[in-house]
């Protein structure tokens, strides 16, 4: 499984995004991170060809949240056959926006001295959860009431290995903030908020039902003015709470 970082959100283990056989010997694996407000794409490039690779560059297609490289792809020396290099590519969210299907799809082009290669990957939405995503309590209540019921989506998260306290602190390290907490008939109810880099707010009610001593069942209700993000926010909750 992946690793949590000291001051950042959950980081998935690197996955192969471009197999060598599809890219004339260039293999790319990677993952996404968010640490203290900085998003990066952490890449591992391996040369499985018989010739040296040079002149690397990377470009993203337009995407739903304007993710774009914030610097050129820096491969400091030619990549020899069988050599691997690790690169952290800083990203920003001020690139061109085009709604993708699925919403978190990212199309990438990488070039080197041999050719240009293309691949697609999906990024976890929690890399877009900003540090100032804690909504004021009064604003939360007003917004919760204001967002119509048809914009509410409900999800189940079964067998979560954390209690209410740990759930709240784990989520906070990924910029999902608990605005209020209540206990009703033995269930903890957390009211939470998060904000995406493009300013979209998501409000959540997380109902925590004690299961057996080591697991809890969670019911997540999400309210958002852009309800197409809810499915991806739910996936972020699952990932953060189960890893």
């Amino acid at each position: 499984s992946g690793v949590g970082t000291l001051s950042g959100s959950y980081v998935a283990p690197k996955a192969i995004w471009l197999p060598a056989m599809k890219a004339k010997g260039l293999e790319i694996s990677g993952t996404f991170t968010r640490q203290v407000g900085s998003i990066s794409m952490d890449l591992q490039l391996t040369n499985k060809a018989l010739q040296v690779m040079t002149d690397f560059a990377i470009q993203f297609n337009r995407n739903s949240f304007g993710l774009a490289p914030a610097a050129p792809l820096q491969v400091h020396a030619p990549l020899s056959p069988n050599q691997t290099v690790e690169i952290s590519l800083p990203l920003n969210t001020v690139g061109s926006v085009m709604k993708m299907e699925p919403l978190n799809n990212l199309q990438v082009a990488v070039k080197n001295n041999i050719d240009v290669f293309y691949f697609s990957t999906l990024y976890p939405l929690h890399i877009l959860f900003v540090e100032d995503g804690k909504m004021d309590r009064q604003m939360f209540l007003a917004t919760w009431k204001d967002i119509p019921n048809e914009n509410e989506a409900q999800f189940q998260i079964r067998d979560c290995p954390l209690n209410a306290e740990a759930v709240s602190s784990r989520l906070q390290s990924s910029n999902i903030f608990t605005v209020a907490k209540r206990n009703v008939e033995g269930q903890d109810m957390l009211y939470q908020s998060l904000k995406l880099t493009n300013g979209i707010w998501v409000l959540a009610e997380l109902r925590i039902q004690p299961g057996n001593p080591s697991f809890t069942h969670l019911q997540l209700s999400l309210k958002c003015r852009a309800p197409e993000v809810s499915q991806h926010v739910y996936q972020a909750y699952e990932t953060i709470l189960k890893n």
Binding site: R137, L141, W144, A180, R182, V184, Q187, M189
Partner: peptide, 20 residues
């Protein structure tokens, strides 16, 4: 502590969601 009524409002919200 100044009671701004918000504590009570959250209690009512949680209550209404549990017993609609």
């Amino acid at each position: 502590e100044l009671d701004d009524g918000l504590d009570e409002a959250f209690s009512r919200l949680a209550q209404s969601r549990t017993n609609p």
